[in-house]
């Protein structure tokens, strides 16, 4: 997944995952990461009906919808130095905060529902969407309180409830009913990545395990 990017203006080479320039006149400089989402087209369309979408017209055959499943069997880079916490091609939602990093396996997020965890001492919520592939993360601190989230038991649709007030929350991190209605959780950036790649660039990462 990780690659180098080349800019024609200065002839510098940039690392994708960090945005850092590794070679060339701008060596040592770093691109600013902007917030971004990895969600299904349906989710994005429902939340941002005024959005535009980019149609690529390369005139070539693009990978099919199941391409991610098909490349999951390919060998992975890393060699003997790689950590064996997870299979190399297991997808994780990685979060970095306060110099710490945690990989949340997508498999665990799908199985266990909302995950209440902490990264770098800060309480976070990591949650997969109803489709199982969209993933978002939020700070759990709201005002002076730290919230704990559960999957709403009374619906098959996506809904969370917080333990303290029983308010209902949607996938965008907004409280839609209950005492906290109208409140918005602050997002924290997660990066969906293969384990072999995530651990390579975050050597001190921990891995979230269900029940710990």
């Amino acid at each position: 997944m990780n690659f180098l990017m080349y800019d024609e203006e200065t002839g510098s080479w940039w690392q994708q995952i960090s945005g850092e320039c590794l070679f060339g006149p701008l060596k040592g400089r770093k691109l600013t990461r902007i917030p971004s989402d990895e969600v299904t087209l349906a989710t994005w369309r429902a939340e941002y009906p005024e959005s535009t979408a980019v149609r690529f017209m390369g005139g070539i055959r693009y990978p099919k919808s199941d391409w991610e499943k098909r490349i999951s069997t390919l060998p992975a880079a890393g060699g003997s130095k790689s950590r064996k916490d997870l299979p190399p091609r297991e997808l994780v939602a990685g979060i970095e905060f306060n110099g710490a990093s945690v990989g949340f396996p997508m498999e665990a997020l799908r199985a266990s529902g909302p995950v209440n965890h902490a990264v770098g001492g800060e309480p976070v919520l990591v949650v997969a969407g109803k489709d199982g592939n969209s993933v978002r993360s939020f700070f759990r601190r709201l005002g002076g309180n730290v919230l704990i989230f559960y999957k709403a038991p009374d619906t098959a649709d996506f809904a969370l409830v917080d333990e303290a007030t029983g308010s209902r929350w949607d996938f965008s991190g907004r409280a839609i009913a209950g005492p906290l209605a109208g409140q918005q959780l602050e997002r924290i950036q997660n990066t969906k990545d293969f384990w072999f790649d995530w651990q390579r660039y975050h050597p001190k990462t921990t891995v979230y395990r269900v029940g710990r």
Binding site: L41, Y48, A53
Partner: peptide, 23 residues
């Protein structure tokens, strides 16, 4: 050659396909 489309009329990929969304 990439062009913009309104998301309501965007059917180039399936509804269940992942997009990178930016605001």
């Amino acid at each position: 050659g990439a062009v913009l489309a309104e998301i309501a009329r965007f059917v180039d990929v399936a509804d269940t396909d992942i997009v990178i969304g930016v605001k």
